[in-house]
Design a protein around this nucleic acid. Sequence first.
DNA 1: ATAGCGAGTACCAAAATAGAACCCAGTCGT
DNA 2: ACGACTGGGTTCTATTTTGGTACTCGCTAT
Lengths: 173, 173
Amino acid sequence: MNAATNTPQLEDLHHGGVHDGVHDDATTLERTLKLVGDRWSILIIRAALRGIRRFDDFADDLGIARPILTKRLQRLVAGGVMAKERYQERPPRYDYRLTPAGVALSPALVALIKWGEHHLADGSAEIVLVHAPCGTELEQGFWCTHCATTFGPTAIRALPPVATPTARDRTKS
Amino acid sequence: MNAATNTPQLEDLHHGGVHDGVHDDATTLERTLKLVGDRWSILIIRAALRGIRRFDDFADDLGIARPILTKRLQRLVAGGVMAKERYQERPPRYDYRLTPAGVALSPALVALIKWGEHHLADGSAEIVLVHAPCGTELEQGFWCTHCATTFGPTAIRALPPVATPTARDRTKS
DNA sequence: ATAGCGAGTACCAAAATAGAACCCAGTCGT
DNA sequence: ACGACTGGGTTCTATTTTGGTACTCGCTAT
């Protein structure tokens, strides 16, 4: 097997690999990306985190075509990320707000923002994310409660919850 | 962690606050999403982290149509996430591997994986990410080096880098 | 010479996206 | 009472992006 390559050790990020041809390879990541892995969903979530709730405000703020916005919002609602709520009865009006699951996407958002600011910034960073109470720039990373230490991506390994299926092995020669 | 989920304080995630209507909103996040914000790029990066390097192997592993793969790889290369390298001279052969910037996307990947496992898992988690040295499930989050504490998304605030209102942003009010 | 490999392209059909206009229920100003 | 307005969409068409299969091209090993 091709274990222990010189690459990062995240090498088994989706546990199995060898599939009998079935596409149950629709791993959680793939389904996650189906839900939020397009050019708009993340921006919608960011807008929602900024307090935007109403259809027209999303449309204005994002510059997204309205039919697409409709579909995205529906998908996010179906996926449990946002909830549609009637905020006013008389003329029935609805808005969209993040569910706790939606707010839980913040780490991903932050990771993308920080990555962009670091690796894609034209000139200097546009924004800096800080710890609100003290104003210090926040760090994001991994830590191990057992070792009480932080670490980088190369110290990550992915395990299936129970067993250890072998890594996909495309031994050619 | 995240108390008060219905009033996230990330409300200023891209510093504008009150929106000025201008579309210089091509913020870094938007550019980041243009680069990796589709259904394949993240999966390509995951595959690369698993050690996949060659065109055909990406194609096989992901089940992506080859023309799309070509475009995605080109885009990732152009964006500095991956590098195309000749790994053999005689019949000139190239492969693609992550740059450090590409590896730096791991936090985003991990955030998405963990979110999916937590909020989208059909049944139970498919994989668990662990701290390789000790095997303990990793935590991901934010910390403040000043306060020496960890915190959740509600304690995040976004600031413009120097608090200088970058003239173009002030043009409206 | 021919079969095969690796890394793509060419070509076409199907789907998603963008943009603008339109719809509908309710409400407000006059 | 009547038209304009508001909020939250839908319909329509044009364009772009995807997906799928087949093919090419340079090279090598048989």
